[in-house]
């Protein structure tokens, strides 16, 4: 392959990282934005999505179906968790942080006890490459990119224009008032957590064939989404998307020249500096 091919492929890889990171970070941001809970178990929800596909793999199901099932199941689990546990954490930052962290530990350990600590390989639903302008792009990565982009556009549009989006914005701005208008806030909370969870789940399902799947993989994605939210700001979905672009892009570029860990350390340092210079985030108006 020529140098141009290598560069283009790296760009594609970085774009995939950014797209998936956007899905995860948006999920984290809408939960934080609406319920003021920083869901420290979010990485584990992604990990569950991965294992959903693993199970689909084992059962011999169509792998695209596996991704869909993973996101639906994780979404349902999210809904259940909100109703049973998460809603008891509202109002106290300490409770939210420690509670979701404990939940994350339990999820990791449960999966470890069932599947073992070793990485599990997952086959991709699509194999082979498409040649675009002479460069062979892996089909699956292109598909992941397309699906992520599509989902994000769908989210942005529905938040803006669909009734459910308007209701969510109302609860976000003033819960009591919204309830006076007949909007059922507890349902909105459950629904939002469920949505955030299924976004993490679908992200997990999509990347399962591309990365090493083990019970401990969630923390890395959690940290990345934090960096995204810190750098991009949490006020708007656009800000989160921008943050994902910066963080994913930086990591993609740096990890090409050095290791993945070094890339993450540099990105953390970057985030800390950004927080000093522009505390509200790069993409949020003051």
């Amino acid at each position: 392959m020529s140098t141009l091919d290598v560069v283009l492929l790296q760009i594609l890889n970085t774009a995939v990282i950014v797209g998936v990171l956007m899905l995860v970070a948006i999920g984290l941001a809408i939960i934080y934005g609406l319920m003021d809970v920083l869901n420290l178990a979010h990485g584990e929800l992604l990990m569950l999505g991965c294992y959903g596909v693993v199970i689909a793999n084992d059962l011999g199901l169509n792998l695209w179906l596996g991704v869909l099932l993973a996101s639906v199941i994780v979404g349902l689990l999210g809904w259940l968790l909100e109703r049973v546990f998460i809603r008891r954490l509202y109002g106290s930052h300490f409770a939210g942080l420690l509670g979701t962290w404990g939940l994350g530990i339990i999820l990791v350990q449960t999966i470890r006890l069932i599947f073992g600590p070793e990485p599990v390989p997952v086959r991709a639903p699509l194999e082979g490459a498409i040649s675009i302008l002479g460069t062979p792009f892996p089909q699956y990565r292109l598909a992941v990119l397309g699906i992520s982009a599509g989902l994000i556009v769908l989210l942005l549009l529905s938040y803006r224009y669909l009734t459910i989006g308007i209701k969510t914005r109302a609860v976000f701005q003033d819960q009591e008032m919204a309830q006076c208008c007949g909007i059922r806030a507890p349902r909105i909370y459950a629904g939002t957590f469920s949505l955030g969870a299924s976004l993490a789940g679908v992200a997990g399902g999509l990347i399962a064939p591309l990365v090493s799947v083990d019970p401990f993989m969630g923390a890395g994605y959690l940290v990345r989404s934090f960096m995204t939210v810190i750098v991009g700001g949490v006020g708007s979905l656009g800000g989160v998307a921008g943050g994902a672009g910066v963080i994913g892009g930086a990591e993609g570029v740096i990890s090409y020249f050095s290791s993945g860990i070094i890339a993450q350390v540099v990105v953390l340092a970057l985030a800390i500096v950004v927080v000093r210079i522009r505390p509200q985030g790069l993409f949020v108006r003051k």
């Binding site: 940290v223 934090f226 960096m227 810190i230 070094i262 800390i272 927080v275 210079i277």
Partner: peptide, 30 residues
């Protein structure tokens, strides 16, 4: 210096410290 002048407090402080611990552990293990 960076965190306090940037007025980082509460949950954001927690996640930065969490990220730091995660990365130092990963860095050290490698």
């Amino acid at each position: 210096y960076f965190l306090f002048y940037g007025k980082v407090r509460g949950p954001y402080f927690v996640i930065v410290t969490l990220a730091l611990a995660f990365l130092m552990q990963a860095l050290g293990n490698g």
